[in-house]
Simulated assay, not measured.
Amino acid sequence: MNILILGDASDAHAAHMKNVLTEAGAAVDYLDTCLFPRQLRLSWRPDTRVGWLTLPSGRLLNLEDIHSVFWRNFSGVGVAPLTDANQQQVAFNDSMSTVRSLVQACPARWINSWRAYQFHKEKPLQLSLAKQMGVAIPETLISNSPEQVREFVGTREKAIFKPVYGGAHTKLVTEAHLEPHRLDLALSISPVTIQEYIPGTNIRSYAIGESVYSAEIRSSALDFREDLEAELIPIDLPASVHKQCLAILKAFMLEWTAIDWRVKPTGEYVFLEANPSPMFVHFERQTGFPITQKLVDLLMS
């Protein structure tokens, strides 16, 4: 059974999955798209939908022979530097188009898929869909308008801000952030996500297939990802929230995900985001939840 891991050995989670899948009897290779087109070879026939992948090791795989792919991270392509900027852009576009096409054409089971990855990049749409499903979300503004940002913040006791796409931790909005020159400059560079601050408790739920595993994350940090000492306490979700986890999994085109919630003092669960390629090894070690085994089961089924 041929299984690929999208990523490389420098990622601890990718290496972890390669080890456990190999121990389970699969033939496992990394699919590191950064090595395309210099070391990784891809070929595909749109008329017959037959394709081949030649790994840097020289191993040749027919796309039909790839059973499944574990999506750890997608790093784009690694086009060699060229002196002509136009040629460089053409080479990059051609390489990315080839990789994007092959990822979607490969008939293997993807955990998770390109469509799920693309949808995750549009986090405002993710929030909107959750709301349409009847899931509570924070009051949220995505904007690069200083006037709209000041109005939104001014009508709430506390507000937080974070990137629209991701890549940085959540911070509280302060008066210094709203200083006119600073705010105008920041918003001329990029828009921002502003949300109401929700007092309460952080909950992370891993939904895998038909299973859901959840834990309270006890931390004094505004963004628990900054707290290496955060305590993880396994919990049972309310039945309604358990159902919402599985509904989110399906609606977001996911095979597995980590869903972050904020639970108000009233007990209401508020959805923050669903990650299609979350870190999980530390969570698993602290809680004892069988996340790795569930992933192995998905990839080998």
Rank of each mutant, 00 (worst) to 15 (best):
V241F: 03
I160W: 02
H242M: 06
R225C: 01
P81T: 09
D260V: 05
Q148H: 10
K294G: 01
V212P: 01
L178G: 04
R285I: 00
K294D: 08
M96N: 05
D65I: 11
R156C: 13
L82E: 13
Y197C: 00
Q39T: 03
R285C: 03
W256V: 04
Y213G: 03
D47Q: 05
L60W: 07
L129K: 04
D223F: 03
M17Y: 03
P56G: 14
D29V: 04
L254Q: 10
S128N: 14
T170G: 00
L31V: 12
A26R: 07
F92A: 04
R109N: 03
C106W: 04
Y206A: 00
A136P: 05
F74M: 05
L42E: 15
R38T: 10
R182E: 10
A26K: 04
G154D: 11
F289G: 04
E196R: 06
K250L: 07
I208Y: 03
S43Q: 14
S10Q: 14
V103H: 11
Y30Q: 04
T48V: 08
E268T: 09
G154C: 09
I198Y: 04
Y117N: 12
L298R: 13
T266M: 02
R109K: 08
P107N: 13
S68T: 01
Q88T: 06
A239Y: 09
D297N: 11
I189R: 08
T54M: 12
E231G: 07
V212C: 01
A207S: 05
P234W: 01
V281Y: 01
S301W: 03
T54H: 10
P146D: 08
S145K: 02
R150Y: 11
L172V: 07
N202T: 03
E229T: 11
L246V: 09
L237F: 01
A80D: 15
Q118M: 11
G267K: 06
Q148M: 09
M1V: 13
E255G: 13
M96S: 05
W256T: 04
F289W: 07
P234Q: 00
P199Q: 07
T174E: 15
L127H: 14
T140Y: 12
L246I: 12
R156G: 10
R285T: 02
V77K: 05
V28T: 10
Y117E: 12
F283Y: 12
T170N: 01
G58E: 03
L53N: 07
H181W: 12
T140M: 09
A221E: 07
E231S: 09
D47R: 07
L4A: 02
S205D: 01
A24N: 11
A186H: 00
L125Y: 09
Q126M: 15
I259P: 01
A136M: 05
L249A: 05
L21A: 04
D260T: 02
N202E: 14
I235F: 00
V99D: 09
T155M: 13
I142Q: 13
A239E: 12
S101W: 12
A85H: 03
H16K: 06
L6Q: 10
R100I: 15
